[in-house]
Nucleic acid binder design. Structure first.
Lengths: 217, 217
DNA sequence: TAAAATATTTAGGCAAATCTAAATATTTAT
DNA sequence: ATAAATATTTAGATTTGCCTAAATATTTTA
């Protein structure tokens, strides 16, 4: 698989999770920041390679083979993100662009040994699960902070939005994975929430609360 | 720079060390395992990018800019080789192909932090010097084992041939970097040498002796 | 349900990096 | 010094992945 083909598989994998149906040409084009006509070309190619099914005008869906391949790329991406944060002092908002390159390195031994070196991490720096060697993805039970109620308590376990802007915002407010958060109040008017984190009171916007995943406890 | 352009710069850099003169189209074609006509195309492109000088029929020579770029790629290659051997349990005959991919990852921070993480290694697993941040390459004084005389003693510091076959041969005979070797005898007839390593006597071919670098002591 | 809006595909082209075959330049050897 | 051998370049194709513009299919809406 070429670099470009791998990126298509990854994009389609992510889109399939959201929609369940076949993934539309336009959706892929948007995700890949390319044109619909380019997507059509690629879908034909990938379908010939048996990694996805494609009928004109009916979108695409990965075959088992394609899904397995996509999961391998995602596994590599997330392991490299762990490596960058834990061993090379990267901040969690810096890792994505570099991991986008590293995920395409081809070497089974490399990724097996990297996993071992990192002591088999379960999640990446954003809280997303790392697929294991066999492609199993263990999802953690998690809900959005925005769906929690007054007096609920939880542990921060992931982010929905991995943009640098949001991650830096969390850093600034000392919100990090593993931290305990208690909901003190919710404002009907604008969905903002007041929370207790490290014994400090903090008010965050509805948008922020809608991008932070929590494990209730 | 594209992946292919980076590989051309690296190849030309290595060839320039050997010949001093402008590097010929054919020499590059052989090093890159491609056709001379492809090389001509690329030389024109690289010369427009000012990383080398090229006059038809007169070969190529890197500009300062091109040389600096090549050195950066080589620095990355060798640092990744160290990482693979020291942290991920790779053998020294397995690292090259993977480092060929890793050397093209673009991130200044990545390579700076990797260097720090590895505690600023001076040489890669084959004994080749790792260029520093500023592009300085500190060459170690070294000679070929084949040029040593009876009763000379030295420390094994590098290999000339990095092929998997040769490296496995060295492993099998327990010859490794850092080991002390004493020359017991040389055979005029076929240039084979008898050496003492770890108190064991060993006879190696002239070819092998011609691919092992030693520091006299 | 037919027209309008939207989505998708097709057709034709482009740039990068490669190739083969032919043309041209340089070097070597007699 | 000239013919033969070798090296290099040019010309013309090919593949991959992308593009724009036009054609066609599907969906929405009035």
């Amino acid at each position: 698989m070429t670099l470009s083909e791998e990126n298509y598989l990854k994009a389609i994998f992510h889109l399939e999770k959201k929609s369940k149906k076949g993934v539309s040409t336009n959706a892929i084009a948007e995700e890949m920041e390319t044109k619909a006509s380019s997507v059509t070309d690629m879908l034909k190619k990938l379908s010939e390679k048996k990694v996805l099914q494609y009928k004109p005008y009916q979108g695409a869906s990965l075959t088992k083979e394609g899904r397995d391949y996509a999961i391998k790329v995602i596994r590599k991406h997330r392991l490299w993100e762990c490596f960058l944060v834990e061993k090379l002092n990267f901040n969690w908002d810096e890792v994505h662009v570099v991991a986008e390159q590293l995920e395409h390195i081809k070497s089974d031994k490399l990724i097996r040994e990297l996993d071992k070196f990192l002591e088999f991490p379960k999640t990446d720096p954003h809280g997303d699960p790392i697929p294991d060697q066999d492609g199993n993805i263990f999802m953690v039970e998690k809900i959005l902070l925005s769906s929690m109620q007054q007096n609920d308590k939880g542990i921060c376990v992931g982010v929905n939005d991995s943009s640098s802007a949001f991650l830096k915002y969390l850093d600034k407010n000392e919100i990090a994975l593993g931290k305990t958060i208690e909901v003190i109040g919710k404002e009907e008017f604008d969905d903002s929430m007041t929370i207790l984190i490290k014994d400090k009171k903090l008010t965050i916007s509805g948008l922020a609360a809608n991008n932070l995943y929590m494990k209730v406890c």
